[in-house]
Nucleic acid binder design. Structure first.
Lengths: 205, 205, 205, 205
DNA sequence: AATGAATGAGTTTTCATTCAT
DNA sequence: TATGAATGAAAACTCATTCAT
């Protein structure tokens, strides 16, 4: 009799999609708060108004929820980053484009990936998923190519990738903790560091 | 009879210290392989020739083992890093001293912190413990001081700390995977990046 | 419009009866493959193109499906066996009539009771249902009567019943596994065994 | 302080062996009462004074308990039967030796395999385990040999095996239900049936 | 009447911890 | 102190059944 009840024509469909999202949201929060390893399916369910059995209508296990979150993240971020890099014709464009996209994405998703409040798990939960890693493998590949083409100086591509990844993750975490969450500032900082530094890096023989 | 008694006494002491080390080594390996959160006391005991009850003669819980590992690490690395920074009179010394100490430490401990082989936990287990973090808080503090003293340009100290931490961790991981595990090369790379880049960083008002 | 309506009506009736049979067939197969005890309503539904809720339009529970299968079997076999025995005027007719009817029935139903392929349940699922047992209780009663009337020698009727039941079940299982599935040969074997053996059986005081 | 407490020197050892037996006994009873398929590990534990976790110190699953029971039975009965048959030089010895051993064994174990009281599962729980079946495969092989050697007439060995198995199982069940549980009478009955009947069986070409 | 998602009680299994030896 | 079996609370997962559509 309530309006929300009557209005929806395909209530079942909606509910089903909503439940999936409810579980995913709860999982994101729980993973952030307790860390992936320590989190249990129970914890996820408890963070939900659903019954325990319902979880298993959507996911077979904690791993599977994690995959789903991963895939969502990857689907959102990887194409953006790849596009930036492919469009780049100079080191500046390559570096600044990558960092701008990445920090912008993190800032946008801040709402969705609720900040880890009281982490019981001493290992930090990062958005450091295989898919994201795969995204950085793409970065590595593109850096190799760029170095081969002479766009970049002939430096250690693996270390350079690692450095960019490390800077991106750590600064983004710091950025998220700040009130302003200024993605542009973070991107400018990281970009300047690399543009200034890359030319000084040891050249490989 | 007396001599055998004394020998036993000596062995006892040794055994006791050995058991503690046995547990710590097993815990390091298990944490690396499954992640801290997913690891259980059972897992640690299983990676040990000891009986389950024996564990509790040395540690009260998984957390306590973790503390002990942390403290070991911190005890080994933090004084080294602090000393490097306090000795530094230039940016070059500050940066290169920090990175050289850090990568040297990681290379040394490669044997002890067995490489995470097949990680079931998708979140990477880094030597990213609170104590190590605390070590980097010291770095942050020292950077603030150094900026205040004019040793460093007036950049965003938090972001710079984050960048150094991220580069240190990611490159050290990469380094550990390499056959040669060349700490000097890693340190040179990171140092060059920062020395070249720092002067380009955006200045704060 | 009317014609399509009538056709649908006819199909409905058919569908309804078909659904019942679909469930029964699935249940027979599932019971045979997993054993009655281990089988779940879920398993039966899964072996069906129907939805879970539909099951409950036809049966209240696993037990009720079982009853239905039982009753079907009993309805088919018991009257036949009783008729054979009542018609019998000699031991030969009694014994050979019973075995011939039984093995013929099993051979006929081989198609319906699909052979248990890979039984997860180590206890064999036999067509050894209460109704069939009841059928053999009738055999016991009739044997008692026949012994009382002097048709059979004065042997232990319970043991004789048990022997006939055991031989019937075990040989029928063997027969079903054979390509030819020759009911007559099985009946001849069992009949000869009992006709030859009965006269040698220990007489009761 | 109680005598039963102090008396036992190796209380641990004893308890451990006892617990295993406690679980096996409970399992035998539960399997008999509910059927193997319907029985749950919980049911077995509940039939025991032990804690739920203790079950898993001894068996990994319901299947494993079942295996253990099976193996016990097989270990006890198969050698006896084989010995009887190998010792036999006539049909009489072969048949009567087999039946006497089998019924004697069943009578002995009546205490251990508590009689199925109120079976919820309509499929009867027989000691009809793969190992026991394997025992009858040995019977089949020996019958083939005996027929080949001319000890037995040239009848259908598979059917004869099935008949002996069926008679053995069904009569033993009947026997167990009787107060006297007279193994000798059961053996005499079965032996007479077969000795009288075998010569009448249809000869194979 | 058919559907299939939600429910939550029940089952299986693991685990930290205790304690008798 | 070392041992390792017992414990039972809690986690993982299944299932019969209901009910909105």
């Amino acid at each position: 009799m309530s309006s929300s009840h009557e209005a929806t024509g395909g209530r079942r469909e909606l509910t089903k999609a909503q439940n999936r999202q409810t579980i995913l949201a709860a999982a994101r929060q729980v993973f952030a708060e307790m860390g992936y390893g320590a989190a249990t399916v129970r914890d996820i369910i408890r963070a939900t108004p659903l019954a325990s059995g319902t979880f298993y209508n959507y996911f077979k296990s904690k791993e599977e929820v994690y995959q789903a979150i991963r895939d969502e993240v990857a689907l959102a971020i990887r194409p953006r980053l790849q596009e930036e890099r492919q469009r780049a014709t100079t080191v500046e464009e390559f570096v600044s484009g990558s960092f701008r996209s990445f920090f912008a994405f993190v800032a946008e998703s801040r709402a969705r990936f609720r900040a880890p409040s009281t982490t019981a798990d001493p290992t930090r939960f990062r958005m450091d998923t295989p898919e994201v890693i795969a995204g950085f493998e793409e970065l590595r590949a593109d850096l190799h190519t760029a170095i081969g083409k002479g766009l970049f100086p002939h430096v250690d591509a693996d270390f350079l990738t690692a450095a960019m990844v490390g800077v991106a993750f750590e600064i983004s975490e710091r950025m998220r903790l700040r009130e302003d969450c200024d993605a542009a500032a973070a991107a400018d900082f990281a970009t300047a560091l690399f543009l200034g530094g890359i030319s000084s890096l040891p050249k490989r023989p």
